[in-house]
Design a protein around this nucleic acid. Structure first.
Lengths: 201, 201
DNA sequence: CGTCGAATTGATGTCATTCAACTACAGTGG
DNA sequence: CCACTGTAGTTGAATGACATCAATTCGACG
C-alpha cells in the first residue's frame, strides 16, 4: 500500500488537511487503486454504493435518468475530484445516480471507513471544517441559483469560465445535459455567441 | 444561559448527536435567543454572516436576487431547521443570500465557534457523520434533479408532499419563487390540478 | 470509402413568461 | 360605515425560450 500512496490522492490529503504523509498511509487498508475504461460504469442505479472515488487521472460523470427516460448530468469529476453519493453511502440506501467513465480513468476507491479512520486519527476541528464539503455544497447552491435565475446562454458562459478545459474533453451533448438543455439548443446558443464574436472554444 | 437551553435547539442537539445535555450547555456562550418580527431581515446581501440560525419557532426564508432583479427562494426554514451560508461563514465572504422572517420568529443565533467548540468536546466520528450535512446536501441534490428533470406541475406536487403544512403558512407567490416559476404559472398549474380533482390544499 | 455517432440547421410545437386587466380581500383613514 | 389603498391571486392574449422532430453535414475510425 506504500506504493499506492505515491498518488495525487496522498498529495491532496496532505495539502488539504495539513497532515503528515505517514498518517495518511495508516488509512491505506481502506483505499485501493483501480483502472476504468472509457464508457464503463462504476455505479448503477439501485446499487447501494458504500464507496467514494477519488479521480487520480481521467474523467467521470455522475448522472441520473428522469421519469421520461432522459439523462441529466449532476457533475463531472476530473482529476482530484471526489465522487460519491452521500445519501447512499451514509444511509446505505440504493443510489439514483450512475457513475460512468468519460475517459480511461484511474481512481482511488475509498471505503466509507476511510473517512472514519481518518477522522479518528486527527482532531475533529480539521476534519470538520472540511473543504471538500464546503466546495460541494457551494457548487450545488451555485447550480441551483443558475438553474433558477439564469438563461441557457448565461449558464453556458458560466460553465466555460468555471470549467475551461472541460470543453475539450467532454462531448457537447453532455454539456447540454449538464446545463439542463437539449444538444440542439446548446448548438444554437453557441452559434449566437459566435455571432457576437465570443470565442467559444 | 442555563435558561436558554430549555429550547428545541438543545433537544435537537441531544437527539441528533446523542450527547448529554450538560455538554451542550458548555457551548452556551456561543448561542443566544433572539426574536424577529415578520418581514424583518436577518442577513442582507453583501454582509458576511458568521452566524447560523436555528429556528425555534416561526418561519424564515433564504433567497437571492438575480441579475434581472428577480427574487429566488433557496429554501424555507420552519421549526427545527438551521439556516446559514456555509460559504460566507467558512470563508468569511460576503453572502449573496438574504434571510428574512416570513412569520414572527424565535431563533437561536449560533456563532461559528459553536460548531468548533462542539466538535472539540466530542469525538470526531459523531460530528463528522453529520446528519445535518447529509440532509442539506440531499435536499440540494433533489432540488437540482427536480429543476433539471421535472415539470412545474411535478415540482409543485413534490413540494406539497414534502412540505404539506407550508401551503397554509406561505403566500403562493413565494412557493412559485421556490419552484422557479412565476406566480401566474403556479396559479395555472393549480387550476389544472383542480380540474383533475387533485386536492390542492 | 462507408459507417456511426455528434453536431448543426430549419420548421414547428409547447410550456412558461410577460404584460395588462380584473377580482377579492384586509387595513387605513375620513 | 364607507371610500381608498395596497397586496395576493386569477385570467386572457401575446410573446419568448427552449423542445421536438426531421433532415443534413461533419468528423473519427475501422
Amino acid at each position: 500500500m506504500e506504493k499506492t500512496f505515491k498518488s495525487n490522492f496522498e498529495k491532496y490529503l496532505v495539502e488539504t488537511f495539513k497532515i503528515e504523509r505517514s498518517a495518511v498511509a495508516e488509512c491505506g487498508d481502506f483505499a485501493s487503486i483501480k483502472n476504468i475504461e472509457k464508457g464503463q460504469i462504476l455505479v448503477r442505479t439501485g446499487e447501494s454504493s458504500r464507496n467514494w472515488f477519488f479521480v487520480e487521472k481521467g474523467l467521470l460523470r455522475q448522472y441520473f435518468i428522469d421519469k421520461r427516460g432522459k439523462e441529466h448530468i449532476l457533475y463531472f469529476a476530473p482529476e482530484n475530484w471526489l465522487v460519491g453519493d452521500r445519501n447512499s453511502a451514509f444511509f446505505n440506501r440504493p443510489t439514483q445516480y450512475i457513475v460512468e467513465a468519460i475517459e480511461d480513468t484511474t481512481i482511488m476507491v475509498l471505503d466509507i471507513n476511510f473517512a472514519v479512520r481518518l477522522s479518528e486519527r486527527f482532531n475533529s476541528a480539521i476534519v470538520d471544517s472540511d473543504l471538500l464539503l464546503q466546495r460541494h455544497i457551494l457548487q450545488l447552491q451555485k447550480r441551483i441559483s443558475l438553474l433558477l435565475g439564469a438563461t441557457a446562454e448565461e449558464r453556458y458562459m458560466d460553465f466555460i469560465s468555471t470549467y475551461p478545459n472541460m470543453l475539450q474533453r467532454v462531448p457537447q451533448w453532455m454539456i447540454a445535459s449538464y446545463l439542463g438543455i437539449t444538444p440542439e439548443s446548446l448548438s444554437r446558443v453557441r452559434r449566437e455567441l459566435a455571432k457576437k464574436n465570443f470565442l467559444i472554444d
